[in-house]
Amino acid sequence: MRTKRVLWSLGKVFAAGCTALAVLTGICLFYYNIPTHFPSPDGATDYRWEPDTFYSRGTEGFAWGKTNNEGYVNLVDYRPGMPVQVLVMGSSHMEAYHVPPEESTASRLNARLGGESVYSIGVSGHTLPTCLCNLAAAVEKYRPSAYVVLETGTLFFSEANLEAALNGSLAEIPSHAGGLVGLLQQNQFLRLCYAQLKGFLGQGGQDSEAEASPDSAPAASARTADLLDALLGRAAETAASSGAKIILLYQPSTQLSPEGQLLTPEDGEQRALFSSLCEKNGLLFLDMTKRFHEEYESRHILPHGFINSSVGSGHLNSAGHAMIAEELYKLIEEGA
């Protein structure tokens, strides 16, 4: 009799647990629904998300949408041979998971250019060295006819990373789409729990991504300058193979000072270095520092941060994307 009662209670606990898991998974579909990612078959990026899949993000900003047929966060589906004028590459900022898909840099630029000519393959974790590594494959596949935009949130890179990018030995961002881990990733609540657990253990949470903070930038060395020179020179050649020019987009991280001033990294020397290297190698250097300051000083608008995250820091918000799209448009118009 006692055993029966215990079994009955255990069964009830199990059933209640399963029901709760189902409800929580349902909630997560609209709060934290990140598709599984797979290694990219063509090398244009290190990985891609599951294609044609609904995603949502409520942890930093509120956004939801559907990945395109290739698995990128892009309003445009890719069709082999489709004309791509502008190819956008970069990190989670260009992936724009945190804003509605129509408000991303790529979508806004597309709207300004009036067509389906801008294609974004921005994916989380793709820093400039990673993008430079993937550039040849990306250009070969998409054949951008006018521009390749390479976004970066920092101008400071370690020598080791640059060397690795130059000789093609930069470690790829791994995907764990197979086996038990892949199966567990299918459940959004478990995925959220994993991210939370990492956060509790101090290993980065839901939206952690390394960003250079304004005061933690290391000094650049002559060797770094040489490596950058070589990398940018090679990138320009690669882009030119399809008739495109590279726009190196620098959107600095921002934060506020106690006096209420907008701070961007003290990287004047580095910006001058990038500017001269871009000019030397035939790249366009779009530095958003001035625009970010102007917007803040004249209209108190910040390019980063959301209504559910720290003010002025984190990923690009809708206003930030709009500023970048506008500056890109101006640059492209000037070029035309």
Binding site: I27, F189, C193, Q196
Partner: peptide
């Protein structure tokens, strides 16, 4: 009760899932 237990598990799940981890 079953529904009480379910609500209890949901509450703990929400606490863990929505918690600020900084």
């Amino acid at each position: 009760r079953f529904w009480g237990l379910t609500a209890f598990f949901i509450a703990w799940g929400l606490i863990f899932g929505l918690a600020f981890t900084g």
